[in-house]
Amino acid sequence: MMAQRVSSGQRQEFVLLIVLGGLAVLVGAVGIVRELIQILPNTHIPVAVDLTDVPHELLLDGASGVGSTGVEVTDAVVRVSHLGPTPLALALAAALLPAITLMVVAACFTVLGMSFYRGDFFVRRCLVAIITAAVALVVASVAIPTLQMLAAEGALESLGVGSGQLAAMGVDGPLSLAGALLAAVGHAFWRGVHLQEDTEGLV
């Protein structure tokens, strides 16, 4: 396989991509460890909840003691302890998945950067990296909001204030769009890889 020539300017950009990707993988790993430390003891686990359909009352004290103002909260973070196995697993999955997604996508971009640095552009390794990142983003765009909703429902249930409704499947628009765009780039790379293979060894 013949590598293409890469200019020194391009090399610097690819090194930057490798470094940023590596850093993002590191950040993801730190995030995973932090979440594990926070959640595994099963005490005071912070869970983001949507209180739109949960009856609640919150009073904000006036600054000069002139009375209180009732407010409606839509999003809040509740701290729950002693969750059952399923709610705990859901809370853990909801907390870990964003970091795992970040790590997978960052690792794929690091692989791309390393491949580009060597002058290998339209090769199967790059194609696999792009498709993996795209699939990770698309899966995460559905799994993250869905798991977060399920975890929130489990947390509210543990507090005895659950809505009792089954959580609907959620979709993260920007993430799914990013995944779709990356999949489109992956398709272009797939064509490029085939073109490269077809013309390799052509004289």
């Binding site: 077809d198 013309t199 390799e200 060894g201 052509l202 004289v203």
Partner: peptide
């Protein structure tokens, strides 16, 4: 044609020829 390409052809490493 470049010497490199002719060398590829000469050494039976070519997979296709225009």
């Amino acid at each position: 044609v470049t010497v490199v390409n002719l060398s590829v052809l000469k050494n039976d490493r070519a997979r296709a020829i225009r």
